[in-house]
Design a binder for these strands. Sequence first.
DNA 1: GTCGTGACTAGCC
DNA 2: CGGCTAGCCACGA
Length: 111
Amino acid sequence: MAEISTFANTVYELVKQIPRGKVSTYKNIALALNKPGASQAVGQALRKNPFAPEVPCHRVIASDFSLGGFFGSKTNLDKKIQLLKEENIQFDLNEIKKCPKYRKSILFFLT
DNA sequence: GTCGTGACTAGCC
DNA sequence: CGGCTAGCCACGA
């Protein structure tokens, strides 16, 4: 097993707690860790993602509801994400941007 | 112990 | 409105 840093470990747990059909933002997670500025550090933890299938990194997006950088850019999760988006998440940024209220509905607020 | 990176955020031009 | 810079935190080398 891989030894994970305490910080990353917390991030993974939070992300894993995200229910199906909902998403969270890096900042939100960082805030949950009481580190409002560690948003990037959170992303780093997910980038390593030792719990790949367990931690739905695709459910974590930027605070602006942007895809941050995984979809069809750096990683080839492309199809994986697409599947998840259709099966688990209504990750239609188009819809989200159109309906600000809707995005809040799918936004899973961590504490 | 120091430097550089990274899937970020907010502010500034 | 759009692009760029600076700042933030954590981790790897």
